[in-house]
């Protein structure tokens, strides 16, 4: 607690244009924690249903394309790496490089979504969706696929949001609003992207490696 109190002493009184680097990051972290709880609710559901239907979940997992899942993980990890490095680049004053790295991350996001779309449409074509007659009378697998669509779907929405935020960061960098001195927007955008990455790190074993 003591360093918190000390830091408060430093907290300068608000000026007309209030910029608080620490504060901005704190706000972003709080938001990410609330995102964790959002997904936390889903993880609770997953755990309980899997405890109830261990075999059906394993059967459900065998319908997943693990290779695509792993490939997509590597894509996301690389994107995270790029956006993390872009902060270093910007801090060192290499704006072009930073913009290139953010652009790379955006591309990995788009690639991820394309793979996702291929996967989903494949499953739906084969009849693996919750109320399809293929799964009729198999409650465990219905649950597995319901959770699969909901969790990867919500994650996909977050990827799209992340792409939007990173695009905004890119534009702000191009316009000179996000700079070597004021990079917190980029840093927060990156934080968001990393969260999206972390959630996927958990989704991979829960669905793709569940067999």
């Amino acid at each position: 607690m003591s360093d918190v109190a000390a830091e408060a002493g430093r907290a300068e009184h608000a000026h007309e244009e209030h910029r608080d680097y620490e504060g901005a990051k704190l706000g972003m972290w709080l938001f990410l924690l609330s995102e964790c709880m959002l997904f936390g609710g889903l993880f609770v559901l997953y755990a309980m249903y899997r405890a109830d239907h261990p075999r059906a979940f394993s059967a459900g997992g065998s319908h997943m394309d693990a290779i695509l899942g792993v490939a997509n993980t590597l894509v996301l990890l690389t994107g995270s790496f790029a956006v993390a490095s872009s902060i270093t680049a910007l801090q060192r004053g290499r704006r072009k490089l930073a913009m290139g790295l953010v652009g790379t991350t955006i591309l990995t996001g788009v690639a991820f979504m394309i793979v996702k779309a291929v996967e989903w449409s494949g499953h739906i074509r084969q009849g693996y969706f919750p109320h399809s007659h293929l799964l009729q009378g198999k409650p465990g697998e219905q649950l597995f696929f319901s959770l699969y669509y909901v969790m990867t779907g919500l994650h996909g929405l977050h990827v799209i949001a992340g792409i939007a935020v990173l695009t905004a960061a890119l534009i702000l960098m191009a316009r000179g609003k996000v700079t070597q001195e004021h990079f917190v927007f980029l840093e927060n955008a990156a934080l968001y992207w990393h969260l999206v990455d972390i959630i996927w790190i958990f989704l991979l074993p829960l669905f793709y490696l569940a067999a």
């Binding site: 300068e12 000026h15 244009e17 910029r19 680097y21 270093t88 801090q91 001195e181």
Partner: peptide, 12 residues
């Protein structure tokens, strides 16, 4: 009116 750079930051 802190520059982000004036607060202690760690460049990784």
């Amino acid at each position: 009116m802190a520059h982000e750079a004036t607060e202690e930051i760690h460049v990784v």
